[in-house]
């Protein structure tokens, strides 16, 4: 188990989901793939003027408001994403500048497919836990792309989640410990200059998502001496609506433990933001003293598992700072043609 020398926790969190939605039914209408693919209701689609940067900025602003923290006190702004607007040039510097964390800070982008956000969180925990910094921000944000007609097109959504890691005494949820589990498993990847990723279909399941998530979560629980009954809530990476439910059940969790954090049916797979948005949704509803398990998954492959306990501060700023439900409830449905335009699938130039 990993646990820093100095006790740390989440002193603020925030999330963001774009306004636009396309329904699975609408995608299926175009590709005639039948009812069998409708694993979710709809997915979030970014606006024409949105990208990972703008999504991360709004999530980060919400997190800073929750933390009631002077942004200049952030010693790091770390952003995990697989959809960086620039291949070379940090997205995190734009976010850091926009939230007012610059110039005496660190900023960097992280890449580990869908667990880049929790990778940044692990690093932030170590950074603050070592005493090198008092506050560090970890963000996961993506505007995921699936090849038209591919299974991924039903799920690849957009969103962001940001967490301010700081001292335990100020936290809304403190950290009990974490565990990371990584192997070289090529289940999903995107080569340079390719627009869409390649994936291994069923290979993304058992040896990839399930093995890594279960190994990380189980190792952490074993190390902490907890069983599924010790957790009030659990959140997993949500590539579709089946995998996280199946993994929860295999780990011995029941629906009321995973229900509030399961957002994929409404926002899609938000990649590096997926488990973070789930955690934010759970924190929005949690009472003080609840124990929460978070286990991400990133293709390639690995999982980061964390055990948090909410504090008396958990309800801080629930109004007027937007909650996940405010974003999920704000929805404008678009058709496939508008979706194609929003996602750059129309040749405009």
């Amino acid at each position: 188990m990993m646990k820093p020398l100095r006790d740390v926790g989440l002193v603020g969190y925030g999330a963001y989901v774009p306004r636009y939605r396309i329904s699975a039914e609408e995608i299926s209408r175009v590709w005639k793939m039948g009812e069998d693919n409708l694993h979710l209701e709809e997915k979030a689609v970014p606006g024409l003027d949105e990208d990972t940067t703008t999504i991360a900025i709004e999530a980060a602003r919400n997190a800073l408001r929750k933390a009631a923290l002077d942004p200049s006190k952030l010693s790091a702004v770390w952003l995990g994403s697989e959809s960086k607007p620039y291949s070379v040039k940090p997205t995190a510097t734009i976010v850091a500048e926009a939230v007012g964390a610059t110039p005496h800070t660190m900023a960097a982008d992280w890449e580990f497919a869908c667990k880049a956000g929790t990778e940044a969180m692990q690093a932030a925990i170590g950074f603050v836990g070592s005493g090198m910094a008092d506050y560090a921000m970890a963000i996961g944000a993506d505007t995921a792309q699936g090849k038209p007609g591919d299974q991924l097109e039903y799920t690849a959504g957009a969103g962001g989640a940001a967490f301010v890691v700081g001292p335990k005494g100020e936290s809304m949820a403190y950290l009990e410990g974490s565990h990371s589990y990584v192997t070289d498993t090529p289940d999903f990847f995107r080569r340079p200059n390719q627009h869409y990723p390649t994936h291994g279909n069923r290979f993304t399941g058992e040896p990839s998502y399930f093995t890594h998530t279960i190994m990380a979560a189980r190792a952490l629980m074993d190390e902490l001496g907890y069983g599924p009954e010790d957790y009030d809530r659990v959140v997993f990476h949500q590539p579709n609506s089946k995998f996280p439910v199946r993994v929860a059940k295999r780990l011995g969790f029941v629906e009321e433990q995973y229900r509030d954090g399961l957002l994929v049916p409404y926002v899609g797979n938000t990649y590096a933001a997926s488990s973070g948005i789930g955690l934010a949704a759970v924190l929005d509803k949690a009472e003080p003293g609840e124990r929460i398990l978070l286990a991400s998954y990133g293709s390639g492959a690995g999982s980061d598992a964390f055990s948090f306990v909410t504090t008396e501060c958990i309800a801080r700023g629930r109004n007027p700072i937007p909650q996940i439900s405010d974003y999920v409830g704000r929805r404008r449905e678009i058709d496939y043609a508008q979706y194609a335009r929003h996602r750059g699938k129309l040749m405009m130039y």
Binding site: T53, T54, I94, A98, P320, D326
Partner: peptide, 27 residues
């Protein structure tokens, strides 16, 4: 106020970010 893409200078150029305004999300 929110921060959004104002424009980009072609496929290889700079992306310009800045303020836009949206209907107030929450009172």
């Amino acid at each position: 106020m929110v921060t959004r893409r104002l424009r980009e200078h072609g496929e290889s150029g700079m992306i310009v970010y800045g303020y836009k305004f949206r209907p107030k999300l929450k009172d």
